[in-house]
């Protein structure tokens, strides 16, 4: 392997790791704030990508991304307000089932709005950054920077802000939080809106390097093992798990070929579950899912 290949493999692993991280940050956010495992996060990501593919060409990349975030925040909020809200205080299982329904509704909406043909998101820039004796797409660095900003922002928001504190109380016990005078519906809606924003950014970064297609939700196939490695409840874990999975996936692909990479990632997840059933960053007390 030449130095140039190594550089570009590391860059693509980092990019993929960023995408998985953003997917998982949205998942972990909802687990941490509302105690809901959102199986529709993949469809949120898909919808974010489709919205950007519709808005980007006329508005330009950055305004388009901003508008996509606003749209997806609204979708997240409405998903909670029109659907999830009615399971307030209900069992986690019911909530998971309802998120499945939400995922089907979102898919049908995408097919109705945009049909079945793939679409495209043009990247913010086609510039390349020279590195050693090769060059890396500038969008890779932008993606990494956005991921870091969102991850750090979420960690600080939940650990430092009073709103974040109330959200954590909410995830521990919705009815107790209500007794405390916490506006459970507003805060849950807010958490869903924030998950929508994570999905918007994840969808745009992911789809600009692939295609805007109905297959986008399958990102969860590999993002999910990454979240499990990270313990499902920790942002730091989600990011580190995502980077590990992306790295393992990229390099086994290169060295062993495509038929092995998924097998190896899943073996990694199973081994983790056997050694540490709550992931590397989870706590044994947390029994979600």
């Amino acid at each position: 392997m030449t130095a140039a290949s190594l550089v570009s493999l590391v860059a693509s692993a980092m990019l993929l790791g960023s995408v998985y991280s953003l997917v998982n940050l949205g998942v972990v956010l909802l687990v941490r704030t509302t105690g809901t495992m959102n199986f529709a996060q993949g469809e949120f990501i898909m919808l974010g990508a489709y919205v950007m593919s519709a808005l980007g060409p006329s508005m330009g990349y950055w305004p388009g991304l901003l508008a996509t975030c606003v749209v997806m925040a609204s979708v997240g909020f409405l998903g909670y307000y029109l659907l999830m809200r009615f399971l307030h205080g209900g069992s986690e299982f019911d909530k998971v089932v309802l998120t499945f329904m939400l995922s089907i509704i979102l898919t049908q909406a995408v097919i109705m709005l945009w049909g079945t043909d793939p679409r495209e998101i043009a990247p913010a820039t086609r510039a390349r950054v020279p590195l050693l004796d090769t060059s890396v797409q500038a969008t890779t660095f932008i993606a990494i920077a956005m991921t870091v900003a969102i991850a750090v922002g979420l960690v600080l928001f939940l650990s430092r802000s009073i709103t974040g504190l109330r959200m954590r109380a909410l995830s521990a016990d919705e009815s107790l939080a209500e007794y405390y005078g916490i506006r459970t519906e507003v805060l849950s809606g807010l958490a869903w809106a924030m998950a929508g924003v994570c999905a918007a950014v994840a969808g745009v970064i992911y789809a600009q390097g692939t295609a805007v297609a109905l297959t986008l939700p399958e990102i969860l196939l590999l993002a999910f093992p990454a979240a499990v490695l990270g313990g499902l409840e920790s942002f730091e874990g989600a990011v580190i798990g995502s980077l590990v999975v992306a790295g393992v996936y990229t390099f086994t692909n290169y060295v062993l070929g495509g038929q092995w990479s998924i097998v190896i990632v899943y073996s990694l997840m199973l081994i983790t579950l056997m050694v540490r059933p709550y992931g590397f960053f989870g706590r044994p007390v947390a029994q979600r899912l």
Partner: peptide, 16 residues
């Protein structure tokens, strides 16, 4: 509620 600190639990009572 398990994963809040003692001070955080008390702070939950501050009128928002």
């Amino acid at each position: 509620i398990k994963d809040l600190t003692v001070r955080e639990l008390i702070a939950l009572g501050v009128e928002p």
